[in-house]
């Protein structure tokens, strides 16, 4: 198998959780692999990240360039094309940066590209057998990838468990001189931080979270009534925000808020991995969905196959009755 490189995403001098996951994915491809971490950036933050990776990678390629202080995918791509050997396999976390970088990188390396890889089932010569999901996670697929001229694989965050083993004592290799001139047709200006919303869903112990199954804006009231009865807040998945039924600050997921409730009620939410990535702290999850194939049922503790528009009002009424009796 070809040499394997892992592109390390980092921020403020700390590498992303995906760094260790990519090392694990590399060893799934080749048990004897000694994957190389590639880190681009600038200044003391970059040095700190490279140093921290020496325990999980035998070799860390450091690419220091002021133009790479903020990770602009076009500039990073040009740097990588200049330093990576022909025919290698590059692993990148499948998140907003990987989505920006990897398809174009694969073209410039003349390599195969597979996005959102969540399993590696085997190697047959130059062919990799990979696992992906389609239809919003409703079904899985095996994909055969010809790596004979290299491959770029975007790896789903959280899909590979980091290896447990003795820490390595890797070396940092400075590749900064090899990146060449870096110019791009896209220029980073600034990051606009999300506005705080009316309700802080990250502070609530119980969330009644609604998805596409709520069907229209007026039906949000059904979820709000249940939430009021429970002393909970209403959160949601992306389609509800896209439809402007709730503000962005109520969205749970990788592009929204990360929540740590005790109880999470997923109502009419299919359960995409981007949504699940926003639920931390191992809450008790109740999934209510009329589609028995909804991926949320795979991760929930309790599932109810029902139309939330009927089920939620009945549940609210019953809880009110119960409370009425106990008072």
């Amino acid at each position: 198998m070809a040499r394997i490189f892992a592109y390390i995403v980092h921020k403020s001098g700390v590498s992303d959780d995906s760094a260790a996951e990519l090392a694990a994915a590399a060893r799934k491809i080749d048990g004897n692999a000694s994957p190389v971490a590639v880190v681009t950036g600038w200044g003391t933050d970059l040095d700190a990240v490279c140093e921290s990776l020496r325990t999980s990678y035998g070799e860390v390629w450091k690419v220091a360039n002021q133009a790479l202080a903020y990770p602009n995918a076009e500039l990073v791509r040009k740097a990588l094309v200049n330093i990576l050997p022909h025919g290698c396999v590059v692993l990148v976390p499948h998140a907003h940066f990987g989505i920006d970088l990897s398809p174009g990188l694969s073209i410039k390396m003349n390599a195969a590209f597979v996005s959102d890889v969540l399993g590696i089932e085997g190697v047959d010569g130059a062919y990799l057998k990979l696992v992906r999901q389609e239809f919003g996670g409703q079904i899985s697929a095996h994909v055969r990838c010809d790596t004979s001229s290299g491959a770029v694989l975007n790896v789903r965050p959280g899909a590979f468990k980091p290896n447990e083993g003795a820490p390595l004592n890797g070396v940092v290799v400075d590749k900064s001189a090899d990146v060449g001139a870096l110019t791009a047709g896209r220029c980073y200006l600034e990051t606009v931080v999300a506005e705080a919303g009316d309700v802080d869903i990250t502070k609530h112990a119980v969330l009644v979270s609604v998805g596409r199954g709520i069907q229209e804006k007026d039906n949000i009231a059904i979820a709000q009534e249940l939430a009021d009865t429970l002393g909970a807040a209403v959160s949601c998945s992306r389609p509800v925000v896209d439809a402007k039924w709730l503000p962005k600050s109520r969205q749970v997921g990788s592009s929204g808020q990360t929540v740590k409730p005790k109880v999470y009620m997923a109502c009419g939410i299919s359960g995409s991995f981007q949504h699940l990535a926003g639920i931390k702290g191992n809450p008790f999850i109740v999934a209510i969905n009329k589609n028995p194939k909804a991926p949320f049922f795979q991760v929930a503790d309790v599932g109810i196959v029902a139309d939330i528009l009927e089920f939620l009002p009945e549940l609210t009424n019953k809880i009110r009755e119960t409370k009425g009796v106990s008072v």
Binding site: S140, R144, D146, F297, V305
Partner: peptide, 25 residues
Amino acid sequence: AKVKRVDYFVPALGKGAEILQGSRE
């Protein structure tokens, strides 16, 4: 094509949710 879908499958699931059964009540 360097990338080809071989097949679709339903993965062997972990524990999964306990689906509550019975009448609505």
